[in-house]
């Protein structure tokens, strides 16, 4: 399945054309956020991340579905 993943702040992907905060990934249907993080080589403790799918906070085991909008947000507590 195709997913759009938004990588906030520190998690941006460094590319030759500059840091990217939006990436498209291909994953087997039903994959968890933890598996998505492995694919993206993000080794930050999920405890220090906010995992948000379609605007809702979820746990690392949350099963993803086609078309989900995923945000991986390094801990931030306000502005």
């Amino acid at each position: 399945m195709q997913l759009v993943v938004y990588l906030h702040t520190l998690l941006q992907k460094q590319t030759p054309s500059g840091p990217q905060s939006r990436v498209q990934v291909d994953l087997p249907e039903g994959s968890s956020i933890a598996e998505l993080m492995r694919l993206l080589e993000i080794d930050m403790d999920p405890e220090h991340l906010l995992l948000v799918v379609n605007g809702k906070v979820v746990e690392p085991q949350h099963a993803l579905r086609p078309g989900d909008e995923v945000h991986l947000v390094p801990a931030i507590s306000g502005g």
Binding site: H8, T9, S21, V52, H71, V73, I76, G78
Partner: peptide, 11 residues
């Protein structure tokens, strides 16, 4: 602090 903006956009 502006980093929280994208999270607010998400919510």
């Amino acid at each position: 602090t502006i980093a929280v903006g994208r999270l607010c956009q998400t919510f």
